[in-house]
Design a protein around this nucleic acid. Sequence first.
DNA 1: GTTCATTATTCCATTCAACGGAAAGAGTGA
DNA 2: TCACTCTTTCCGTTGAATGGAATAATGAAC
Lengths: 249, 249
Amino acid sequence: MANSSSGDSVIDRVVRVLEAFPEGVSALPLTELADRAGLPLTSAHRIVSQLALHRLLEQAPGGKIQLGLRLWELVNRNSPILVLRQAALPFMDDIHQVLNQNVNLAVLQGDDVLFVERLSRRGSVANRAKVAGRMPVHISSAGVALMAGQPRHAQNEYLSRFYDPSGRTTVDHVRQLLATAAERGFAELAGVVDPDTWGIAVPVEDRQGLAVAAIGVVVPIAEVRIHQIVPALKTAARGIGRQLAAPTG
Amino acid sequence: MANSSSGDSVIDRVVRVLEAFPEGVSALPLTELADRAGLPLTSAHRIVSQLALHRLLEQAPGGKIQLGLRLWELVNRNSPILVLRQAALPFMDDIHQVLNQNVNLAVLQGDDVLFVERLSRRGSVANRAKVAGRMPVHISSAGVALMAGQPRHAQNEYLSRFYDPSGRTTVDHVRQLLATAAERGFAELAGVVDPDTWGIAVPVEDRQGLAVAAIGVVVPIAEVRIHQIVPALKTAARGIGRQLAAPTG
DNA sequence: GTTCATTATTCCATTCAACGGAAAGAGTGA
DNA sequence: TCACTCTTTCCGTTGAATGGAATAATGAAC
C-alpha cells in the first residue's frame, strides 16, 4: 500500500504518466491523461504540474499535456542509443547507396525488436522520422537475428514464453528459425508489412559475440543480388561492432 | 523539508537523476551519479532501481547506469518535436539540395536555442546525430529570429535578464538585432563556431504569427547567393508553418 | 444572457512510502 | 590474504504524498 489506495510508488506513477500517450499522440487533456494512467484526477494534476516545472512535460496552448522539450533534449544527448546510431549510420549509408533499398537498425527489447533507425528506399527524408517502431521478434528478420545471438538461457526463456495468438507460428518453427540464423550468421524472413518483400538481417556483435543490434534490409522478392547482400551486411555489422568497441564509442 | 534532509520531492530527485549525465556521456557508476545528482548514495540507489524496473534507466554490463531504451522509445514516439521535425524535413531537404549548405532547425528553450535537426553540408549522414545542441539566443541567427518572433513581454523579460559574461555583447546591441530581425523577417549573424561563415535564419510562425521554430543555414562569408537564400528560407518556413497547422499535424 | 456539463485547480487532514545512516556484501587490485 | 571502493540490504523515523470535497474556469446549448 502506498500513502493511499492504489499501492504504487510515486515513480511508478510518473512512469505511467509518461507512458500514457498512445502511439503517435503527442498531447492529451489532463482528464484523459489521468484516466489512461489510472490515476485520480487530483494526483495526476499534482504529478503533471511537478513534471512540467522541470519541462519533462509541457502544457500546450489549450491546456493539453505533452512531453516536454527538456525530456527530448536529455534523451537526444545522453541515450546510449545515440552511440549505436552514430556508429551505424555511415555503414547503413554505404549499404543504402549500393543497394538502394530500405536499410534498418534494430535492438532487442523484451520479446520485441525496436527499430532505431531507418534509411528509406528512395532517399526520401520524409520517412526518416518513422523510427521507434516495434515488432515481435518472430516476424522480423532483425528480431530473429538478434534473438539468435542471445545467450542460450535467454533464448530458452523467450521460447518458453512464446505464444502466437494468431496461431500462425509454432514454437518449434521459431526454434528452427533461431537455429538456422545462428548457424548461417544471418536471418531471412518473408515480409510482413509487404508480402512481396524479404527481410534479411545480420547481428551486430560485441566482443563477447553477443548480439547487441541487428542491421538489415528489406528487398523485393524478385531481387537477384541476394547472395551479395548478406556479405555486405556482415561486413557492415563487423564495422559497426568494431566502432562500438572503440575507446570513444 | 521532505521526508528527509534535502527538502525536495521525489519527482525533483528523479529529474536530477535523469539530468545528471553530462553532455555526451551515456553511462555513469552509481556513486558518481548520486554525487552529480546531489543525492545520498542510498537514495540514489533506491530511485535508480525503481526507474530501472521500468527501463527508464538501465544497468549496463559493468554496473554503470544509463538512460533506458524505454525512455528513448517514449520520446521518439510521442514528443511533439517529432511533429515539427516531420513537417520540416522535406523543406529542409529542398533547401539542402539547392544550396548544398548546412541547414538546421531550432526551437526556443528559455534563453537558449535548441537545435532539433541538422542536415550537414556534404550530405554526410555521419553528422546527423549531432543534434540536441544548445546555444545562447544572442549568438545564433536562429535564436535572434526566434526571439524576435516572441510576444513583446517575453522579449522584454529576456532582455531584462540578459547578461553576457564575456562582455562582448551589450543589451542594446541585442535589442537592435531583434528589432532588425523583426522588421526584415530574418536574422543574420556572423558565425560563432567558424568565423568565416554567416548564419541566416527565418522564423516558422504559427497562425497567430508567433515564432515556434526557426529554419536556417550556415554559409561561407564569400557566398554570393545571399539574396536568393532568404526568399528560399522564407518560402520553406511558410510551408512548414502550413504543414504544422494542418489537421493531421 | 443564462443554464448546464465538463474540465481544471485549490484546500487540507490522514497516513504510509520515502528517507538515509549503518552495516553487510561484492568486486578489484596489490 | 588484506585493504579499498563500490554496491546493495536493513530498518526505525517522519513529513511528503495522497485524494475526496469544494471551488473555479471553460465552453457548449438554448
